[in-house]
């Protein structure tokens, strides 16, 4: 188990490094001076000269990459082109807003999805199963940003129940401002998780160990809880782990639509200003989080699933 963890950890670090190198090298593949590309067409010659020096463009490409990674290890992600503030500080200021949004979205949707999926599998081919199937497919078909637009339209413009702009101030206010965005991101995940859990429940319900538990006369409730559901949620854990990337994509739209602060809104603003250091820093941090999430979900599965644990 320890070896497996270490192995996966090293691989994750390498993946993040390759991913960041791709972004860094992209600047050099495109024709034109990277410093000009970073700064955009309106930059003054002296600013371009300063950036060229700061980026170390006069040195060989490999050396630039090495310095870049060295800086990252020291927590230095570069400077904002316009204000000169440290990118790491700007990114980590915005990150908590996005993380909270994503966490809340995935929590409510996973709980609801697991309950719906498990219940549909137990009541297979009843009206409830059909209804939850239709609802699942329906919600999966609506991209998060379309869902966000409809949430604004229905709950903020027509019904005027909930606020749709900003993140709010103070605890209670923040929570009411979180409801619509978290709803918009989470809805399609209810469908994904429900379908996944239902399919794996049905598969596991037919397996010998379940029949055996039943033959032993264990109460049906206990069989469902500790012999079926416990294994059936595992694919959902993988789904969520690999889905963190999609959650970040969705967060970009939701933050723009609800005018919330966050890393997605930060990236969009930086792109509009052609502020590549901020874009690069923000993408690096999100990619790191995504790889970490995949790693954690794999480890959780290894911990929860006795069959996989045996193989390690």
């Amino acid at each position: 188990m320890l070896f497996y963890t270490a192995q996966r950890l090293v691989l994750s670090v390498v993946i993040v490094m390759v991913a960041v190198s791709i972004l860094k090298l992209m600047l050099h593949v495109v024709p034109g001076d990277p410093a000009v590309l970073v700064l955009g067409p309106r930059a003054t010659p002296e600013l371009i000269e300063r950036t060229r020096e700061a980026m170390g463009l006069d040195r060989p490409l490999l050396m630039q990459l090495v310095t870049f990674f060295g800086n990252i290890l020291r927590g230095d992600l570069g400077q904002d082109v316009f204000t000169g503030r440290a990118v790491s500080r700007i990114v980590f200021e915005q990150l908590p807003y996005t993380l909270i949004l994503i966490a809340v979205a995935i929590m409510w949707s996973a709980v609801l999805g697991i309950v719906l999926g498990a219940y549909s599998a137990l009541r297979r081919n009843t009206w409830f199963d059909t209804l939850s199937g239709v609802v699942s497919v329906g919600t999966i078909s609506i991209p998060a940003f379309v869902m966000a637009l409809y949430s604004v339209l229905i709950f903020a413009v027509w019904l005027r129940w909930l606020p749709a702009i900003g993140a709010g101030e103070g605890f209670l206010d923040s929570i009411t401002h979180l409801i619509l965005p978290a709803f918009a991101i989470g809805v399609s995940w209810v469908g994904y998780v429900a379908r996944m859990v239902r399919a794996s429940m049905l598969e596991i319900m037919g397996q010998p160990h379940v029949r055996m538990a039943r033959a032993f006369g264990l109460p049906e409730r206990r069989i469902t809880q500790s012999h079926i559901l416990k294994i059936a949620v595992l694919p959902a854990v993988t789904l969520i782990g690999t889905g963190v990337a999609h959650l970040f994509s969705a967060a970009v739209f939701v933050e723009v639509i609800f005018a919330r602060p966050g890393i997605g809104a930060l990236i969009v603003q930086a792109v509009n200003e052609r502020n590549y250091p901020i874009v690069l820093g923000a993408v690096l941090v999100t990619t790191g989080i995504i790889v970490l999430a995949t790693l954690i979900s794999d480890l959780v599965i290894a911990l929860l699933d006795p069959r996989q644990r045996e193989e390690l």
Binding site: V14, I15, V16, V18, A19, I22, L23, M26, L27, V30, L37, A245, H246, F248, S249, V252, F253, G264, I267, V268, A270, V271, R274, N275, Y276, V279, L280, A282, V283, T286, T287, I290, V291, T294
Partner: peptide
Amino acid sequence: LLLFDALRSFPVIVFGLAVVTII
């Protein structure tokens, strides 16, 4: 494989925004 895994670890929209900044 390493290259594929690295490319897959980008959120599509976020990666798209990074490309837009450049080209």
